[in-house]
């Protein structure tokens, strides 16, 4: 639930967001803020980079910013 304060940075969670709509790296970081996940900034960078490498989402530029997205 949104109130649990227990958001986890997982491949499944990232996949869900990117299937819903294109997002920038910063958009994703906002969803997985360190204060919500309990990870350090460095861990967040490493884990999110690994997840994005595995998912290998398509990219498109919207308003001059690179967005990632996944087709269902």
């Amino acid at each position: 639930t949104p109130c649990s304060g227990d958001i986890q940075l997982t491949e499944e969670a990232v996949r869900r967001y990117l299937t819903r709509k294109p997002m920038t790296t910063k958009d994703l970081l906002k969803k997985f803020q360190t204060k919500k996940t309990g990870l350090s900034s460095e861990q967040t960078v490493n884990v999110l980079a690994q997840i994005l490498k595995r998912l290998n989402p398509d990219r498109k530029t919207i308003h001059d910013k690179m967005h990632f997205y996944l087709k269902e």
């Binding site: 790296t25 970081l29 900034s41 967040t44 960078v45 980079a49 490498k53």
Partner: peptide
């Protein structure tokens, strides 16, 4: 802060671009 988020985003994108 937003500048920290900028740095984190830049680090992630740099790692992805190395990968590609």
């Amino acid at each position: 802060s937003s500048s920290e988020a900028d740095e984190m985003a830049a680090a992630i994108e740099a790692e992805l671009n190395d990968f590609i």
